[in-house]
Nucleic acid binder design. Structure first.
Length: 467
RNA sequence: UCCGACUUAGCUCAGUCGGUAGAGCAGGCGGCUGUUAACCGCCGGGUCGCUGGUUCAAGUCCAGCAGUCGGAGCCA
């Protein structure tokens, strides 16, 4: 007797007539006076459940089968047959239904065979993977993660695990979470009265990483093509549908490359992983498409794969924004950062497609971005996607030591903690570039979700670290 | 963090002009049926987010707090 995945059964990989077992959780039960019960069982391996037909001749029919409610766990052995009913091609005629775990109090089980709000499901994050939506999100998320690794591996990139704890506060991208083992009730002090971090675990201040980029650049300048894919932390008090305090970020870095190569890579990469989701998780994406009234989920992904991304210089984007009749809350001037309303106009209304905005003013971008020949802009690029805004941010890195020093001075950065980073320009520097992609934002885009908190199993946001 | 909205049964919601609460679903029981989030009948189920105030009387009006959601800022 072999235990089979429901995904394999429904994909007709298991021959009709064979005797098999399935294991999973009850979605619904319907009883027929014809002397049998229909039990829909899901094992999470695919979107659809398998219909179990349990005849009342089973010795535990009255005691167990009739007690089954949504959420109960079962192991069912039987014969796979062509379905007599409509709605499914095959079903499992049970010889034995073993209940592994009843739902103690069915009235208290939060998940009902009906639509729940996503807000409610967030409150039951430990049970929501059993819902249609979060089962689907989980499978799509996995599919995308696998596609990320596959894409890079097949193209000769090496996965580099940059540290999660960083003792340098020079990553420069926003508020960081402090990592400390000091007794918070009895902090050691320096003679000046400041907290004495020399007595802390690492002998200095330490934080959770906000980006692996600087660290992975060193590996890029040795292995040529590398990427990071791991947890990233931002302590910003931002309460939006697009931000998490803990999220996963993908950061490829390529040597002997310029900004155009970076943009080409980002576009090709996005199209690859979107294609993977479309072909491997069609069932889940069709579910998202069917329940989403405002976004044509499948068409959006399809178009993103098929159509070339629009590319526009920042300077031209500003001209487009200035030339439109649409009134913006923030006035558009060269030199300012694009506001959400501007990004949305460009990607959703003007281009109606993902757009790569390139060559931003140097003053509004990070110190490590490469200064262009005009000396006013840097070789940066953001990819804006309809519905979510910035999904990728990248740049060619400043590989010339004198210019890097100049920009660090402009940003008033202490060069001492960056000596190792400056070394990379001192010892065999090469042009290189890379980008960062927020993994959850990708999941949001593919699934057509509204809130990034539904794209990760246990979301961490300001004031919330439940489960 | 700022602006706005919301918070009523396990879930989704209604509740008019201030007079101490209803529906659907879920649950229990019964009926019916190769059923499809089945259907029909009956039953149980409430500290109306919390604290205070106004009032003879507050789910309803006012204030504070909390939580959630939407938008903004910051960003991936």
């Amino acid at each position: 007797m072999s235990v089979v995945r429901i995904a394999d059964v429904l994909a007709n990989k298991v021959a009709v007539g064979s005797k098999v077992s399935v294991q999973g959780w009850v979605r619904t039960r319907r009883d027929s006076k014809a002397g049998l019960s229909f039990v829909h069982v899901s094992d999470g391996s695919c979107f659809n459940p398998l219909q179990i037909v349990a005849p009342n001749t089973l010795e535990n029919y009255a005691t167990d089968v009739m007690r089954l409610s949504t959420g109960a766990s079962v192991s069912v052995t039987g014969t796979l047959v062509a379905s007599q009913g409509k709605g499914q091609s095959v079903e499992l005629h049970a010889d034995a239904v073993t209940v592994l775990g009843f739902v103690d109090d069915p009235e208290k089980y939060p998940l009902q065979p009906k639509e729940h709000t996503l807000e409610f499901l967030r409150e039951v994050a430990h049970l929501r993977p059993r819902s249609n939506t979060f089962g689907a999100v989980s499978r799509v998320r996995h599919c995308l993660a696998q596609a990320v690794h596959r894409y890079f591996h097949e193209r000769g990139f090496f996965w580099v695990n940059t540290p999660i704890i960083t003792a340098s506060d020079c990553e420069g991208a926003g508020q960081m979470f402090r990592v400390s083992t000091l007794d918070q009730m009895n902090l050691p002090r320096t003679p000046e009265g400041k907290i004495d971090y020399s007595q802390d675990f690492f002998g200095k201040e330490a934080y959770l990483t906000v980006s692996g980029q600087l660290a992975v650049e060193a590996y890029c300048l040795a292995l040529s093509k590398v990427y990071t894919f791991g947890p990233t932390f931002r302590a910003e008090n931002s309460n939006t549908a697009r931000h998490l305090a803990e999220f996963w970020m993908i950061e490829p870095e390529i040597a002997f490359a310029a900004l155009k190569d970076d943009a080409d890579l980002a576009e090709d990469f996005l199209k690859y992983v979107l294609s993977a989701a479309l072909s491997e998780r069609r069932d889940d994406l069709e579910f998202f498409a069917s329940r989403n009234k405002t976004v044509p989920v499948l068409e959006r992904v399809q178009q993103c794969i098929e159509k070339p991304f629009q590319r526009v210089d920042y300077t031209d984007a500003v001209k487009i924004l200035q030339g439109t009749k649409k009134k913006f809350e923030f006035k558009v001037e060269w030199g300012m950062d694009l506001q959400t309303e501007h990004e949305r106009f460009l990607t959703e209304q003007h281009f109606g497609a993902p757009v790569i905005v390139m060559n931003y003013p140097e003053k509004i971008k990070s110190f490590y971005m490469r200064l262009n020949d005009d000396e006013k802009t840097v070789a940066a690029m953001d990819i804006l996607a309809p519905g979510i805004g910035e999904i990728v941010g990248g740049s060619q890195r400043e590989e010339r030591l004198d210019l890097l020093d100049k920009r660090m001075a402009e940003f008033e950065l202490d060069p001492r903690p960056y000596e190792w980073y400056r070394d990379l320009r001192r010892f065999g520097t090469v042009p290189h570039a890379g980008f960062g992609l927020g993994f959850e934002r990708l999941v949001v885009y593919v699934c057509g979700l509204d809130n990034i908190r539904d794209a990760i199993p246990y979301p961490r946001t300001p004031g919330s670290a439940a489960f």
